[in-house]
Simulated assay, not measured.
Amino acid sequence: MEPLFMEAVFQEKIWGGNSLHSVFGFDLPSEKIGEDWAISAHPHGVSKVQNGPFKGQKLDQLWRDHQELFGNQEGDVFPLLVKILDAADDLSVQVHPDDNYALKHEGEFGKTECWYIIDAKPGAQIIYGHNAKTREELAQMIEAGRWDDLLHKVTVKKGDFFYVPSGTIHGIGKGIMILETQQSSDTTYRVYDYDRKDDQGNRRELHIRQSEDVTTVPARENTLNISENKQGSSAVITYLQTEFFNVYEWQVHGFLKLKKQAPYTLATVTEGYGKLIVEDKTYELTMGSSFILPNDVENWELQGEATLIASEPGKHL
C-alpha cells in the first residue's frame, strides 16, 4: 500500500523551451522541450515507476498485468494522460476528435482535455473557441485565412482553468505553462501553424479536412461549476466532474487529509514543497513530482505549502 511515483517523459517540440528545467529543476535532454508526460501509458511516451516493488515497470505493463492496482477497471488502455506543457512559442491552432471519429480514423481514443494555468506571462493568451456560425462559414474562413475573424482569444493568468472538450478549436499561446489532464490520445488535427517552418525548412502538416469534420459548430460554451471545500487553511477545489475524468486542485497550507473516492487517483505538484503520508510512511514532494495512488490506498495526508492538480477516472469508467 504505497503511492507509485512516476518518472517524467520529455517530448521535444518546435515551440518548446527550457522552463521545465528552470521552474521544476528537471534535467532536460534539449533546449526545446515542450512537454513532460508526467503520467502516461500512451505508446508515444510511457511513464516508469520510480519506487517500491514495481520500480522500473512501465505504466502500460502495470495496467495490463496488475489490474488490482486500479480497481480492476475495464478497458485495454490506461485512460488518462497528465502533462506539463512549456509554451516558449505559440502552439498550432488545433482541434481533437471525439472517441467515435478517432477510433474509426486513428485507431485510438479521442481527446478531451483540460488546462490548469501554472504560470503565464503578462498578456499571454490562448485560443479558445471560434466565431463561425455554420460549417460553411467555418470552411470559408479557414480557406481565406481569416484567422483574426475566426479565432476567439482569451487572456489568461496563473490559476485559471479551462475545459477543452473534443471538437473545441484551441491553441496555447507563447509564455504559458500548463498542467493538462486529458484522455490517453495523441491525435491532433492542425488547423493553422502560423506558416512557420521546422529546422529543415518544411512547414508542418495541416489537417484541414479532418479539422472541419470534427469541430463543434457553432462553438460550445464550456461553463464550469467550480466548488471549494475548505479544511482549515487548506482546500480542495473541484474543477470538473465529467465522463472522462474528474479534476481537482489540492491547496495545502499546513495539512490536508483526503479519502479515496475513485479506483485510483493521479496527482502532480505544480507549486511548492511538502510531504505525502500514506499508512504512516512519508514521501517527499517537490515541484513536478507526479504519483498515482492505487486502489488499496484508502486515506492519505499532505503536509507543507504546495499546490497539486489531481485527477481520477470519470464516472463512465
Rank of each mutant, 00 (worst) to 15 (best):
E136A: 12
E136H: 12
L138E: 06
A139P: 07
Q140H: 11
I142L: 15
E143P: 04
E143M: 08
A144N: 15
A144H: 02
D148T: 06
D149E: 14
K153I: 08
T155V: 14
K157R: 15
K158N: 11
K158D: 11
G159T: 03
Y163N: 06
Y163H: 13
G167R: 00
I169C: 09
I169D: 06
I169H: 08
H170F: 08
H170E: 15
I172M: 10
G173S: 12
I176H: 13
I176P: 04
I178C: 03
L179H: 01
Q183L: 07
S184I: 00
S185M: 06
D186V: 06
T187E: 06
T188R: 11
V191E: 04
V191C: 10
D193P: 06
Y194R: 05
D195V: 04
D195M: 03
D195R: 11
D195N: 15
R196E: 07
R196N: 03
K197Y: 13
D198Q: 09
N202D: 14
R204I: 06
E205M: 11
E205I: 04
I208A: 00
R209I: 12
R209F: 08
Q210E: 10
S211C: 03
S211H: 10
V214G: 03
A219N: 07
R220E: 07
E221I: 02
N222E: 09
S227F: 09
S227I: 03
E228V: 06
N229S: 10
K230E: 14
Q231Y: 10
S233Q: 14
S233A: 09
S234F: 02
A235C: 13
A235N: 09
V236M: 08
V236E: 15
I237R: 07
Y239L: 10
L240H: 07
Q241I: 04
T242L: 11
E243H: 08
F244K: 05
V247H: 01
Y248P: 00
Y248G: 01
